[in-house]
Computed example of a mutant assay.
Amino acid sequence: MRNVKPTMCSTHAKPPLRSLQVFEAAARCGGFTAAGKELGITQSGVSRQVSDLEAMLGVALFLRNGARLSVTPAGERLAAQLSEAFAHTWSAVADARRSDQVVTLSMLPSVAARWFAPRLADFMAANPGIDLRITASRHLVDFASEGVDAAIRYSPAPPSDLEATKLGTESITPVCSLKYAEDHGLHAPADMYRATLLCGDIPEDWPTWFEAAGCQHPPPTGPRLGDDGAILQAAVDGQGVALGRSRLVADDIATGRLVAPFAVSLDASHAYWFVRPKNMATTPAIDAVKTWLVDQFEE
C-alpha cells in the first residue's frame, strides 16, 4: 500500500470538483482506463487527478498492486457519497433544463378547442423540445399567481399593462351545417327569417349583420350560449345558424362540417394579441411559441 502524505493546508483546502468527479468515475468504473473513456480524458489524466486528490485529502483512495487496482474502505465511503451527490446534481440540472422548456399558455376555451387543437400536431412537430401547457379560461389570468407565461387575448386594443404583439384580425359571418342550409333554403339573407339564430356574447350581433345585409327588420333571435365553442358545436349539429368568427370556423368550413351561405360579413371589432408581463424574463421556448403563433396567424 502506498503512503499518501497530505499537502500543506490539506485539512482546510477544498478539493476541486473535477478531481472528485474523476475519482467517482474511476471508483464506479473499476479502473482509470474505463473512467477516462467515460470522461473523455486519458488514463494518465485520471491517474494524475486521483493522485492529486489523495495528496490533498491525505488519504489513500485506491490500493495499487502492479496493474491491479482496488478501492480502499475510505475510497468506497467517499465514492458512495459522491455518487449520490452527483445524482442529485444531474437531476437538478435536468429539472432546470426542463423548466426552461415548459411554456404555459392561456387562451379562451373556444380558441383552444376550435383553433389551437387542430394545430397541436403541427406545433409539436415544429417544436419537439417544448413542453407546452394550455390553460383554457374565460377570465383574465393572473400571470404571477397562476404560473402562466403568456396568453392569447381577444380584445379591441392591446392591454396597456402587458407586452403585446398583434397576431391578427378576423371577420364575422353566418355559418351552419350544409344540411341545415339545404333544409331551410338559405340562399339569400331574407331566407334567414325561417332560421333559428344562435346568439353569443361577441360585440357583433345579428341586428348588425342584418343591417349590413340590407334587411331592415331582423327576425327574433334564438338561444343564447355564452361560449363560442358551444355555439359553433350547436351549428355543426344542425341546431341553427351562428355568427362565426372566421379564425374559429376556418377548419370546420374546410372540412365541410360548416358552410357560410352568404358573402355578407362583418369586420370584427376585436383582434388576437400575444401578451405577457412586461417585467417577466423571456426564454427561448417562450420566444419560439410566439414566433410559431405569429406564423400561424399569417397563413
Rank of each mutant, 00 (worst) to 15 (best):
R2S: 06
V4I: 14
C9T: 05
T11C: 02
A13R: 15
P16D: 14
R18E: 12
S19Y: 05
F23A: 00
A25V: 05
S44H: 08
E54T: 11
M56H: 07
L63A: 13
E76P: 01
R77E: 11
A80P: 02
A85G: 04
H88E: 12
W90R: 15
S99W: 02
S106T: 05
L108E: 15
P109Y: 07
S110D: 15
V111C: 05
R114V: 00
R114T: 07
A117G: 03
R119G: 06
F123M: 06
T135H: 06
A136V: 03
V141K: 04
D149Q: 13
R153C: 07
S155K: 09
P158S: 04
L162Y: 04
A164F: 08
A164S: 14
I172F: 05
I172Y: 06
L178A: 15
K179W: 01
E182W: 08
H187I: 01
H187R: 15
D191S: 12
F210W: 12
E211I: 01
P218A: 07
R224C: 10
R224W: 00
D228E: 15
D228K: 11
L232E: 11
L232G: 04
Q239M: 15
A242R: 09
L243T: 09
G244L: 05
G244T: 08
G244C: 04
L248V: 07
L258Q: 11
S269C: 08
Y272M: 10
V275W: 02
P277G: 05
M280D: 02
T282K: 03
P284A: 13
T291F: 09
W292Q: 14
E298R: 15
